[in-house]
Simulated scan of single mutants.
Amino acid sequence: MYSIKQVAAMLDIPTVTLRAWENRYSAVTPERTESGYRLYTDENVEDLRWLKEQVEQHQTNISEAVRMLKENKAKPPQPPESVMPAPLTTPVPTMEEAYSRMADQIYDSLYHFQGERANGLIDFGFTMYGYDSMFYHVLVPILVRVGDAWEQGRATVAQEHFMTQLISQRFYQFFHLFPIYPHLPKVLALCPEGEHHQVGLLLFSLFMRKNGAEVLYLGANTPEEGVFPIIREQKIKLVCLSITNPSLSEKSDRLIDRILSEFPYMRFILGGKGYERNKNAAYPDWIMPENSSDWQAWLEREYLTENPLRTQN
């Protein structure tokens, strides 16, 4: 849920315009707190984003744009013919089956380098299931499946790179969607030198952004010499490291030791199969759960209780 000030900043729409669109045209109907403050849902934000696009890019007046929006929302969503999912069967599938079916179709498109079809399916999935459900129940399982296929020789390096890059681009689009709370410490996210798989790091960085933290994302194969100036100049207080290869854990631990020697206040979050599979990890308390559904509870238990990332009201 977002306040009117947050929505105004996210969409670059003045708060007075948001109120006018609501009061005069019933563009969206945000929820209200007991004190009467507006609270906007993700759906409200996307509807407002669409209205702004119609007004600014297509020169549609706001009343007509609102009418079009309501007509579109009254109709059941239909995917483009070229990306039509397989017809529903009887009985109606469960949500898990629907997610799996969508994931299979996107994976098959990516596997055969059909990027346009894959993007069309992803867009349709966002419409049908919402952003969170698509990310965690469809796109993340695809990324896991891609990694497994590459490790087992069922996907070429080119296929793995193509599939990972396209989905990663969809994640990047949402980095700037969420508001940043200035009182929270900056987070640095990276894979150490030698680690080329960054999907888990990207997903966790998006998770941290949703919690209101500003994340400086360096990505895969980050040279060590570039890390220290950023920590110093940007006043980083929390470093996220991700490795998929357990053989890199000692190298990563040495990097942590060197960071701590210069910045003893630093805190760390460690993730990826390289840490999860390492039974002799030097810093086991900093290793996050493998299941993304457990991240929020873990973050609150291990970090928010000591207030490094607590959102202030």
Rank of each mutant, 00 (worst) to 15 (best):
Y2G: 00
Y2I: 01
I4R: 07
K5A: 15
M10P: 03
D12P: 01
I13Y: 13
R19K: 06
R24H: 12
V28M: 09
P30T: 04
E31L: 11
R32S: 02
R32I: 00
R38K: 07
T41G: 09
D42F: 00
E46A: 11
R49I: 00
V55Y: 14
E56M: 12
Q57S: 12
Q57R: 14
E64C: 03
R67M: 10
R67V: 12
E71W: 05
E71Y: 08
N72V: 01
P76M: 10
Q78D: 08
S82P: 01
V83Y: 08
A86Y: 12
P91D: 05
V92I: 09
V92E: 14
E96D: 15
E97C: 04
A98E: 12
D104E: 14
D104M: 09
Y111S: 09
H112P: 05
F113Q: 03
G115Y: 04
E116D: 15
R117E: 13
G120S: 03
Y131F: 12
S133L: 14
H137W: 03
L139T: 04
G147K: 14
G147T: 10
D148V: 15
A149M: 14
W150K: 11
Q152Y: 11
R154K: 15
V157F: 13
E160K: 12
F162G: 03
F162K: 05
M163S: 15
T164Y: 09
S168T: 06
H176I: 03
L177S: 15
H183F: 08
L184R: 01
P185E: 13
L190N: 08
P192N: 07
Q198P: 04
V199F: 14
G200M: 09
F204E: 08
S205H: 08
L206H: 11
L206W: 04
R209T: 13
G212Q: 05
V215W: 06
N221M: 07
T222S: 09
E225T: 13
I230C: 06
R232T: 11
Q234T: 01
I236N: 10
I236A: 02
L238Q: 06
L241P: 06
T244I: 05
T244E: 15
D253C: 10
D253W: 12
R258S: 13
L260G: 05
S261W: 04
E262P: 02
F263K: 06
F263S: 04
Y265F: 14
R267Y: 01
I269T: 11
G271K: 08
G272F: 02
K273D: 10
R277G: 02
N280W: 00
A282I: 04
Y283Q: 05
D285N: 08
M288V: 06
M288N: 00
M288G: 02
N291D: 13
A297I: 15
E300C: 02
E300T: 11
E302D: 01
Y303L: 14
N313W: 06
